[in-house]
Amino acid sequence: MFQIDSYAYSNRLYSTHPGEKFAFSAATMTICLASSSMITALAVTLLMAGAVVLQAGIPWRQYLKLMTLPASFLLVGVATVAVSVSVSGQPEMYLFWFRAGSFSIGVRDQDLAVAAGIFLKSLGATSCLYFLSLTTPLVEIISILRKLKAPTLFIELMSLVYRFIFVLAETAEKIYTSQSSRLGYRTLKNGYFSLSQLISSLFVRTLYRSRELSKTLSARCYTGEIRVLETRHDISRRNIVVIIVLELLLAALALYDGGGLIGRINS
């Protein structure tokens, strides 16, 4: 997670208008989710990989590593869709199957297609989100949400949570270091004990921090609403044209290959 965050500040698309990146990611994801064509989903995955690696300059090995995480979750998830178990097996409907006692376990043709469809679609959508989070700092994503009139409470919570994740992680790291320098994790048993101490003292410190924060915020005239400046960005016409062209191409591909933009997975 911290790695994604540091890329968000150091990639080559950092200074691009966050609205453009948001629109690109959101539009591509919409097409990917609305279309039933596997080719489109695959195209979206490749397009985003290209954008992240070639445009944003994130090393492809890192990107591949990041993608394996959702991919492995997805594989496990769609396995349950692909595999079917029945008591009265009808072997002719199965692509391959085997018998375990009175059950027949196997994979049916149409289920496999559904599973592959779900897998590719989810992977495509995930890579859209990866594109956004690898190229755009959360602070800027939050300002877009603010412009889109998301509820203030939600936005303020989101930005405070984001800031204090790092404070919390730093505190946890310090406690861990001080514990292990006193052999707190020498054996499994005292490792568990130290961990429990770490967690409980994190809770206490979090409470203390939140009290301190409310003091320091009120010291600066906080009256219940957090208002802050936004960084100004220039809109690039070229980028907007590129985004529109790409989205039109994707939509055309989806229509041509899938026959429609409405999901037909069950047909």
């Binding site: 700092p137 959360l138 602070v139 930005s159 405070l160 984001y162 800031r163 790092f166 404070v167 921090r209 301190e212 924060l213 003091k215 320091t216 915020l217 010291a219 600066r220 005239c221 906080y222 009256t223 957090i226 208002r227 802050v228 400046l229 936004e230 960084t231």
Partner: peptide, 27 residues
């Protein structure tokens, strides 16, 4: 105005620009 001892208790925003602009907006 008070500048607190530990900056980590004072900095609430992940962005330096937003952080510094908080006070003037509240005024």
């Amino acid at each position: 105005g008070i500048v607190f001892q530990d900056p980590d208790t004072q900095l609430f925003s992940a962005s330096v620009l937003q952080e510094v602009s908080f006070g003037p907006f509240n005024m």
